[in-house]
Design a protein around this nucleic acid. Structure first.
Lengths: 101, 101
DNA sequence: CCCATGCATTGACAATCATCGATGTATTTC
DNA sequence: GAAATACATCGATGATTGTCAATGCATGGG
């Protein structure tokens, strides 16, 4: 808000930075997009390796970054690990941007 | 959209990544916040150095990153350089996040 | 049991980045 | 025009990061 709300604290900026850093990578952006556009809104690592043209350890690493940031949810079923988007996580981040116009 | 829109292309991801990287730094988040919460929705470098507790070259560097990403606008008036938020830039980024639920 | 499969972790390496001091440049003032 | 001010640029350095090959760890099938 113009001259309404006070400026962001250093601590808050540090928090938000971690979430924005998580999605500020082209491959991680594509991961989120691939998951959200998949049939059941979830995907396993084996489904994500080929479209990104990346190795399995690299994809696994990126997914971990997104999970640690609270953006993705990880659920293990059998041998597979299914990843889905945490409800409201992206909307929360979007809110930060629209509020600071 | 769940199973509606196609997934994000590599090129589009690269574009968006640059903008998200620009705001994915704690000090740059505070810069945007400071500018948007200032009286006239603009600020010069000298106003931003002290609240961030950073040197002038460092602040100048961060502002350049934000300008190059199309998030901030730079206007020189006299000896001062005034920075303001490009209208709609943050809303555009926010839209990317809300659409990919 | 043993093997195959899916995924996570480790270690290493190159690339990128945030920060700073020193310096350059343009503008105003005297 | 000389000095001062506000800002940009350069070069360097330490830290972070993306990627991969190799390895470890569970789970399910025979």
């Amino acid at each position: 808000m113009p001259s309404g709300a006070p400026a962001m604290s250093a601590e808050r900026a540090e928090e938000l930075s971690k979430q924005f850093k998580a999605i500020a990578d082209p491959n991680r952006l594509r991961l989120v997009s691939l998951i959200s556009s998949s049939a059941d809104n979830e995907a396993c690592v084996c489904d994500l390796t080929e479209p990104l043209n990346l190795g399995q350890p690299t994809v696994s690493h990126h997914l971990k970054v997104l999970v640690d940031a609270g953006i993705l949810h990880r659920e293990k079923r059998g041998v597979w690990a299914y990843f889905s988007i945490v409800p409201g996580a992206l909307d929360s981040l979007a809110g930060v941007l629209t509020e600071a116009r």
